[in-house]
Design a protein around this nucleic acid. Structure first.
Lengths: 259, 259
DNA sequence: CGTGCGGTTGATGTAAATCAACCCATGTGG
DNA sequence: CCACATGGGTTGATTTACATCAACCGCACG
């Protein structure tokens, strides 16, 4: 029995990545925005409630209204929508350090579902505290806006990916994005990133069917882009993937600063 | 020979919709945000340079950096990206009243191309003036942010549309969205909206081929959803389209106000 | 009066979906 | 500790939606 709705009741005694607290969130923002040390510190000092989610736990449901602002500290989460025939499309994948729901601050109801993909740790930040910080510090407001804009840019790239690339390069493109985005907050070697995503989820992510994902994964493995052992899926050679997808990461807007 | 880059040089003597000036922009914002009369007035008094664009004129190119903020007063414009194999995907369609490029204020380079789809009138607002207004009036800042968030929401719906719906309902869904979005700023009867988009553009919009669009249009016509006379394409019966697409417009976030 | 763009049509090809088993690892309860 | 249920994953046969190729048409326009 787990909460259908996030509340601010604290989970006492979580020896989670809550140790490093919101540091990963700050690192994520730094990947695209410059923040003065005191801005960083202010962010790190935000009050929050840590919470551990199981894979599949809902964080927010379409049509609902959210009262809190969850940040993803570890694990993966995703946004998805359903078509009338039951078909599902994953419309965004969130990684450690990502803010999960900045939009509910400004829109009345959610237009999509938000769900944990793996076991995940989130930090639930009270809206008040965040609003206060944003009002007080323009640089932080700007960094959060840039975050929103970059998520939109990623969405556009996904449209191109799903609308115009075949299964093989589509999959390769997604895996490249995964590596590049994870690289921001993770110190892992660029290779040996493992992909804790089922084939069905990959299908819903890329607008394909699980069976076709299965066969396409085999092709990618034959090409040397990935390695599979049992159910584990690991990035083999990013360069191979980059080649297949003609991948370029400009749409991730790393190290911005309009200035 | 037309400008490859927008500048602030005024086009004198344009008896454009520049008469009503930025009113349509205000109306668009009012469709999702409440604005006090003085906020509205402040927006209407923004300085701007009107400019008429021909169909196909570029407003911004991928990789470029924009110095101005264009608003669409009449006509249609769209964002698009190219895949490595030359395939093109239209990732957003902008309608009268829409701000065309709020993101360049905060991101260094454009991640997509922005082009006029039809003859179009735009108002080029100096960034300074807009920034000043945003700083002075929180409600306006909020309204613009909501605008950005809604565009992102539309993008997610497009992902669902392209990823999970077949050609017929995909096309119907798009046409529904067109009608609903135009209804905001246009007083036209909900029916008899005409769609000044070529079949090739529809194909790039929906991730299909022109020939398949052609055949799918015929099906839609047979179903009574649209009417075609020569090259004209007109909405016939929105309810038919709604049925085919199982259309719901919640993702457009009309009449928000978190409150 | 040609020229070209957008649209239309038919024949054919193919990437991906669908259907239907079956496999295997893991976990669970008797 | 075995029996069984379950959730991925794998595989092959078949179908289908959409792409591709290649004409041709007709209006608009310079």
């Amino acid at each position: 029995m787990r909460p259908d709705r996030l509340a601010l009741t604290p989970d006492i005694a979580n020896d989670l990545p809550a140790n490093q607290g919101l540091d990963i969130f700050v690192r994520k923002l730094l990947s695209h925005s410059a923040l003065a040390p005191d801005d960083q510190q202010a962010l790190r000092l935000l009050p929050f409630t840590p919470r551990r989610l199981d894979a599949g736990d809902y964080i927010l449901r379409e049509g609902e209204r959210s009262e809190v602002c969850p940040l993803l500290l570890s694990g993966l989460a995703y946004r998805h929508k359903f078509a009338a025939d039951g078909g599902r499309q994953i419309v965004a994948l969130k990684m450690p350090g990502d803010a999960l729901d900045l939009q509910s601050l400004f829109l009345r109801v959610a237009d999509h579902n938000l769900q944990a993909l793996t076991v995940a740790d989130i930090a639930i930040v009270p809206i008040k505290a965040l609003e206060q910080l944003v009002r007080a510090r323009g640089t932080i407001a700007r960094a959060l806006l840039v975050d929103i804009l970059i998520e939109a840019s990623i969405g556009r790239e996904w449209l191109l990916n799903i609308g115009r690339r075949n299964a093989l390069s589509r999959l390769a493109h997604f895996l490249c994005e995964l590596v590049y985005r994870l690289h921001v907050t993770t110190v892992e070697p660029p290779e040996r990133v493992d992909v804790p995503i089922t084939q069905e989820q990959l299908a819903d992510l890329l607008g394909l069917t699980p069976v076709h994902i299965n066969r396409t994964l085999r092709s990618l493995e034959d090409a040397g882009g990935i390695i599979r052992q049992g159910r584990k899926l690991v990035i083999g050679d990013v360069n191979v993937l980059r080649g297949i997808a003609s991948y370029s990461d400009i749409y991730l807007h790393r190290g911005q600063q309009t200035g």
